[in-house]
Amino acid sequence: MNIEATLVSDLLPLIVYFGAVLAVTGVMLGGAYFLGQRHSAKAANEPFESGIVPAGDVHIRFSIQFYLLAIFFVIFDMESVFLFAWSVALRESGWPGFIEALIFIGVLLAALIYLWSIGALDWRTRRQRIDAQKSGRRE
């Protein structure tokens, strides 16, 4: 099979459609650019932060949980890609494939339980955790 020829002829509708989508986007943005009014007011060019004059740098420090989450995403999404391949070839790989996938998903779940138990999925701060322990609340 000539892959090159197949690709170009088969993808043509998609390419045309994508071109049409780009054209619509261009018309919408370009139209608004040409039709829009222009004016300038005293406070128009200030960042909107609830009417309060912005203070400090935009690049604030944020919770470490966001970094952790990004790493978890990379790990788990990578592994889900292997599961995609297994699920489409389920019947070809048969029971041996199923056992292998079982082990693979077992490792995934074990990793998830480990992350859970070390508190990596817990968004509370240390302060909040201590407070919760003191008052005997579980959440």
Binding site: P47, F48, E49, P54, V58, H59, I60, F62, Q65, F66, L69, A70, F72, F73, F76, D77, S80
Partner: peptide, 21 residues
């Protein structure tokens, strides 16, 4: 370059990648 936007997009990114898995 706005603090609220920054917080919103952080939340959006974390939420979307988590639920995407």
């Amino acid at each position: 370059n706005n603090k609220y936007s920054m917080l919103g997009s952080l939340r959006a990114a974390a939420q979307t990648v988590s639920y995407e898995v």
